[in-house]
C-alpha cells in the first residue's frame, strides 16, 4: 500500500472541505472495499478522509413513512435494527447476508452505495424501494443515482450522507451468491410501494437495473408464477469464470420468482 495522509474530520462540512482542496483525497468508511483496493495498489490517494468521527452520518431513524439510514451505519447495525426489521424486514435480511460477520461489523451502507459494485447487495434495494440518496449537496432519486459499473451520479468530493427508504407494502429479495466471495451472481429485489411495483436486478449486469417486463407482470398479478414466464435476455449480462451470460439471465428469473415468494 502506498502511504497517504490521514484526516478524521468531525463534521460533513469539514470532510467536504478537505475533499474539495485535494482531488486525490478519498473518503474511507468501513474500508472493506477501499483497503483491499489500496493493498493491491489499484489507486494512490494522497490522503484518506476517515468518516467515522462524524456523528451526523450514523444511525437509523423512522421518519413518517420512511426509514432513514445514515451513511456510516454498518451492515450489522441495519441487520439488527428493530426499526428496520419492523418496517422493511427484507432490508434487514439483505444486510444480514452481506459478506461475513467481520465484513458486516465494518462495512457501511454509504460505502456500498457509493461504490456501486455490480455484485453488491444494497443497490438493488435502493432501486426497488425507490429510495432517495441524500448527499452533502443534494437529493438524488434512485433511478438517477446508479449510472454504470462502479459509477454513480455523485461528483468527486461529494459525500453520501444518508439513504431514505420509503416503507413498502411488500418487499422481497433473493440472490445467488458466489460460494467463494459471497458477492451476488444474480439477485432480485421486488417491491410494491404505494401500489407501484419495482423490480431491481443486481449482480447480473454491469450495473443494477429495473426489469420492466417483470414489473408489468407483477403489476397485473403479484405472484411468483407471474414472473416465472418472463425471460431475461442474455445480451447485456455479465460473463466471467463464475458464470456465463446465459446462466445469469436464467438466474434472473429464478431469483425474481424467489423474491416474490419471499415477499408473500
Amino acid at each position: 500500500m502506498y502511504d497517504f495522509a490521514y484526516h478524521k474530520p468531525t463534521t460533513v462540512a469539514d470532510a467536504v472541505k478537505i475533499l474539495a482542496a485535494d482531488s486525490d483525497a478519498r473518503p474511507i468508511s468501513g474500508g472493506q472495499t477501499l483497503l483491499p483496493a489500496l493493498k493491491h495498489r489499484l489507486n494512490k490517494p494522497t490522503s484518506v478522509v476517515d468518516l467515522s468521527g462524524i456523528a451526523e452520518l450514523r444511525g437509523i431513524k423512522r421518519d413518517g413513512n420512511k426509514i432513514v439510514i445514515g451513511a456510516m451505519t454498518r451492515h450489522a447495525d441495519v441487520a439488527n435494527s428493530a426499526e428496520v426489521k419492523a418496517a422493511i424486514p427484507m432490508l434487514a435480511m439483505l444486510a444480514s447476508g452481506i459478506g461475513d460477520p467481520a465484513v458486516r461489523n465494518r462495512g457501511t451502507i454509504g460505502g456500498s452505495v457509493s461504490n456501486n459494485d455490480p455484485a453488491a447487495d444494497y443497490p438493488s434495494a435502493v432501486v426497488a424501494l425507490n429510495a432517495t440518496v441524500v448527499t452533502s449537496s443534494r437529493r438524488i432519486a434512485a433511478d438517477d443515482f446508479f449510472q454504470g459499473m462502479f459509477t454513480t451520479a455523485m461528483e468527486p468530493g461529494e459525500l453520501l450522507v444518508a439513504v431514505e427508504f420509503p416503507i413498502p407494502e411488500k418487499a422481497g429479495y433473493a440472490k445467488m451468491r458466489n460460494p467463494a466471495s459471497r458477492y451476488v451472481m444474480a439477485g432480485a429485489f421486488v417491491a410494491k410501494t404505494g401500489g407501484q411495483v419495482r423490480v431491481a436486478i443486481n449482480g447480473a449486469a454491469a450495473c443494477v437495473f429495473r426489469q420492466k417486463d417483470m414489473e408489468a407482470a407483477l403489476s397485473a398479478n403479484w405472484s411468483p408464477a407471474a414472473v416465472a414466464g418472463v425471460k431475461q435476455a442474455a445480451d447485456d449480462m455479465n460473463s466471467d469464470i463464475h458464470g456465463s451470460a446465459e446462466y445469469r439471465a436464467h438466474l434472473v428469473t429464478v431469483m425474481a420468482k424467489r423474491a416474490v415468494a419471499a415477499a408473500g
Binding site: G31, L35, P36, D50, A76, A102, V103
Partner: peptide
C-alpha cells in the same frame, strides 16, 4: 480480506485486522 486468519475483537465486534487501519 477473505480468509479471516487475522480476526480480532475491536470494541466487542469481530473485525479483520488486515482490513482496518491502525489509525482507525
Amino acid at each position: 480480506s477473505q480468509c479471516g486468519a487475522c480476526v480480532v475483537q475491536m470494541n466487542g465486534d469481530s473485525v479483520k485486522s488486515c482490513t482496518t487501519l491502525a489509525l482507525q
